[in-house]
Amino acid sequence: MKLAGRDEFSIIGFLKSRCGSSECLIRGIGDDCAVTTIGPGEVQLITTDLLTEGVHFKREWIGLNALGRKAVTVNVSDLAAMGAEPRFLFLSLAIPDLLTIADLENLLDGFLSACSGYGITLAGGDTCRSASGLTLSVTAYGVAAEAAWVGRDGAEVGDAVCVTGTVGDSALALQQLFSGQTPEEQLLQRHIDPTARVEVGRRLAAGDIPTAMIDISDGLLGDLEHLLSASGVGADLKLDLLPLSSSFRSALTNNASLIDLALAGGEDYELLFTAPPSALPMIDDIAASTGVPIGRIGSIVERHSELKVYGPDGVIPLPAKRGYKHFPETG
C-alpha cells in the first residue's frame, strides 16, 4: 500500500496496513488505546525519546529512511540496556508543511523496516502539523522476566567495567560533518544508522551477569557517571583498553585530541555494564556467539561516584564536557 496523502487518517491507514501484529497485541492501531497482554512472571519496561529537527538531526546530513530507522534504534537501545525483549512501539509525528508525501513514506518505510529487524510491533501513536521542523516522539515497551532485568544501581567494588563494540565513531562523523568534511562510510553509518545491542543485552540479563548496565547515548564517561552515581561507587578506566575502530584509530594518529570523542562524544548506542570478574568467560562466550565484541575497560572502586582514566603516564584530565546536555548551565 502506498501513502495516499499527508493527512492524519491517510497516515494511520498506511501504518495500519504495514505494521504487522504480535500475539501479545489484542488491539493495535485504530482504537483510542492499544490493548496488550503480559505473561505471568514478567515485568514491563517502558522508555520514550524525542528526535527534533535542528537539535538531534539535520536533514541535509541524514536521509529520511535512515532517520526513521534511528528513531526506532535509540528507543530499542534503552530496552537492550535493561535486558528487555522489545514488544511494542508508539510513534508520534509533528510534520512540517515542506515534507512531501514521498518524504513521509520514505521516513515511515525506514521506521517500519527497523521495527521488523528488531521484532517490535508498532501499536499506535499520533500525528499533527508542525509549524517548524520535523519531530518524532517514540515510546517503546519491552518485557523481561521479573528477576532478569538490569538497572544502573547495582555495581559493586571489584566489578569489571565492560563495553560492547567500539566507541567514538558516531561523534567523529558528526564532528566531520560540522566541519564540512565527508566522513568515511563506516563512521557515517555508525552515526546515522546505529544498531541497538538487543541480543547481547538479553543474553547478559538472562545469565544474571551484569550488576549494572546502561546504553551509551550521551557519551562513555557521562553515562558511566550516571551508573556510578546510582550505585554509589567509583571507577578506574584504562585509556589503552578503549575499543576503537580502525577508522577512528587512523584519525587519532593525526590528531591525538580526538580521544575525547571516544570518551565523551555520545550516540554510540553500545552497552556499558559492570560484572564480577568471574563472569568474564561467560561474557566472552556471549561475544563469540553474537559476533559483538565485548571488552573490559576498567574496574569499579570504592570512591563514591569518582571516575579516573589512566593513560600511559598516569591519570589524565577528563574532558570538561562528558555528556550531551539539552539545557547547559549558564552564568
Results as ranks from 00 to 15, higher is better:
Val35Thr: 13
Thr36Val: 15
Thr37Gly: 13
Thr37Tyr: 11
Ile38Phe: 12
Gly39Cys: 08
Glu42Met: 07
Val43Tyr: 01
Val43Asn: 02
Leu45Ala: 07
Ile46Asn: 13
Thr47Trp: 10
Leu50Arg: 12
Gly54Trp: 06
His56Met: 12
Lys58Gln: 13
Arg59Ala: 09
Arg59Leu: 15
Glu60Phe: 10
Gly63Met: 08
Leu64Arg: 02
Leu67Thr: 07
Arg69Phe: 05
Arg69Trp: 10
Val72Ile: 13
Thr73Gln: 04
Thr73Asp: 03
Ser77His: 05
Ser77Ala: 15
Asp78Ala: 14
Met82Phe: 12
Gly83Thr: 03
Glu85Asn: 15
Glu85Gln: 14
Glu85Tyr: 09
Arg87Val: 02
Arg87Glu: 08
Leu89Arg: 02
Phe90Ile: 14
Leu91Trp: 01
Ser92Met: 06
Ser92Lys: 05
Leu93Cys: 10
Leu93Val: 06
Leu93His: 04
Leu98Asn: 13
Ile101His: 02
Leu104Gly: 00
Glu105Gly: 04
Glu105Gln: 09
Asn106Cys: 12
Gly110Ser: 10
Leu112Gln: 01
Leu112Glu: 00
Ser113Ala: 11
Ser113Tyr: 08
Cys115Thr: 06
Cys115Asn: 03
Tyr118Met: 05
Thr121Arg: 02
Leu122Gly: 01
Ala123Gly: 06
Gly124Val: 02
Asp126Trp: 10
Asp126His: 15
Cys128Asn: 14
Arg129Gly: 07
Ser130Glu: 05
Ser130Ile: 07
Ser130Met: 09
Ser132Trp: 12
Gly133Tyr: 05
Leu134Pro: 00
Leu134Lys: 01
Thr135Asn: 08
Leu136Ser: 00
Leu136Ile: 06
Ser137Thr: 07
Ser137Val: 08
Val138Asn: 02
Thr139Phe: 09
Thr139Gly: 15
Ala140Ser: 15
Tyr141Trp: 15
Gly142Ile: 04
Ala144Met: 11
Ala144Leu: 10
Ala148Val: 13
Ala148Ile: 12
Trp149Ala: 00
Ala155Ser: 10
Ala155Phe: 03
Ala155Asp: 05
Glu156Pro: 02
Gly158Glu: 06
Gly158His: 09
Asp159Tyr: 03
Asp159Met: 04
Cys162Gly: 02
Val163Arg: 00
Thr166Val: 08
Val167Cys: 00
Gly168Leu: 02
Asp169Tyr: 00
Asp169Phe: 01
Asp169Leu: 01
Ala171Leu: 01
Leu172Phe: 07
Gln175Phe: 13
Gln176Asp: 12
Gln176Met: 14
